[in-house]
């Protein structure tokens, strides 16, 4: 089986660019034993020609893996320009597929019911609560926190130091939110609960946004990380 698959690929013209679907988007594997110009040529062809119908539509994250090849900054710039022609393809970086956490390997902890005063959920990973989190209750997660109900207690996302973690709730009125090392307490009074919002870190500051822009936020953040 393996043998025949190998022989087929060696018979046909060798692919310099292989596109793989992974959990968090698309992985472009660029051959490291060919001329960079040839690889770019084939990439362009695939994006605009043969695979155009597959690569248009919904926004996806793109990851690049180039084996042994060390990309110079000029080469990186060339690749970035190639992907810039496709708005729905968001280039994440040049160091292969994202780390495990982003691929969601760690199982989230799902709690169903009311988390009451004095009760605590502590979990290494994401925490999802189907119900209310009352004042005096506490959630500590190394990943993100999602509350499908009223969040009135305290929530600490990214407790192990992940500044990319978020705290989201259907009714967002927490007493206190922490993300990594940053603490923010509630305003003195909520007029009425903010609906479908999430808190995230913007540098050292905590910001709150509508849930509707959550996906956009995640992608933007991935992109900014890639530039660094």
């Amino acid at each position: 089986m393996t043998k025949s698959a190998k022989s087929i690929s060696s018979i046909g013209s060798r692919e310099l660019v292989t596109i793989k679907g992974i959990r968090s988007g698309l992985l472009f594997v660029l051959a490291d034993d060919a001329l960079f110009a040839d690889v770019v040529e084939e990439l362009k062809q695939k994006l605009t020609g043969s695979h155009q119908h597959l690569l248009s539509g919904a926004t996806v994250n793109v990851y690049i893996e180039c084996g042994m090849r060390e990309l110079s900054s000029e080469e990186q710039e060339i690749l970035r320009e190639v992907f810039a022609t496709h708005e729905n393809l968001v280039l994440d970086g040049f160091d292969g597929p994202p780390p495990m956490r982003e691929m969601g390997v760690k199982a989230p902890y799902v709690f169903k019911g009311t988390l009451r005063s004095g009760q605590l959920i502590e979990h290494d990973g994401d925490v999802i609560v189907i119900g209310d989190v009352n004042p005096g209750a506490q959630i500590i997660a190394s990943g993100d926190i999602f509350v499908m109900g009223h969040l009135r207690g305290s929530a600490h996302a990214g407790a192990a130091g992940d500044v990319r973690a978020v705290v989201a709730a259907a009714y967002f009125e927490p007493l206190q939110v922490r993300i990594a090392q940053v603490v923010r307490r509630s305003p003195e009074a909520y007029d009425r609960p903010a609906e479908m919002e999430f808190a995230y870190l913007e540098g050292e500051q905590m910001a709150v946004e509508k849930m509707a822009v959550f996906t956009y936020h995640r992608q933007r953040r991935n992109r900014s990380r890639a530039v660094i």
Partner: peptide, 12 residues
């Protein structure tokens, strides 16, 4: 109300 909530949790 806060204390009642705590007690309800303990009763559960």
């Amino acid at each position: 109300v806060r204390d009642a909530d705590r007690v309800i949790g303990l009763l559960e």
